[in-house]
Amino acid sequence: MINTQIKPFNATAFKQGEFVEISEKDVLGKWAVFFFYPADFTFVCPTELGDVADKYEELQKLGVEVFSVSTDTHFTHKAWHDASETIAKINYYMVGDQTGNITNNFGVMRPGQGLADRATFLIDPEGTIQAMEITAEGIGRDADDLMRKVKAAQYVASHPGEVCPAKWKEGEATLAPSLDLVGKI
Rank of each mutant, 00 (worst) to 15 (best):
I6E: 08
F9Y: 00
T12R: 14
Q16I: 10
E18A: 11
V20Y: 09
S23N: 03
E24L: 08
D26P: 10
D26K: 10
K30S: 15
V33P: 02
D40L: 05
D40H: 00
F41L: 01
T42C: 00
V44F: 01
L49K: 07
V52R: 03
A53V: 09
E57P: 11
E57I: 10
G63A: 05
F67E: 06
S68T: 11
D72L: 04
H77P: 00
K78Q: 04
H81R: 09
E85Y: 11
Y92G: 08
G96R: 04
Q98A: 15
G100E: 12
G100T: 06
N101A: 14
N104C: 11
F106P: 05
G107H: 03
V108A: 02
V108Q: 10
M109G: 05
R110Y: 12
G114T: 00
A116K: 03
D117N: 13
A119E: 01
I123L: 06
P125I: 03
A131E: 06
M132E: 15
I134W: 07
T135F: 08
T135N: 13
G138K: 13
G138C: 10
G140H: 00
G140D: 01
A143S: 06
R148V: 10
K149E: 12
V150M: 03
A153H: 14
Q154T: 05
A157K: 14
S158E: 14
S158Y: 13
G161H: 06
C164G: 07
E172C: 12
A173T: 15
T174K: 01
T174C: 06
T174E: 06
L175F: 12
P177G: 02
S178N: 14
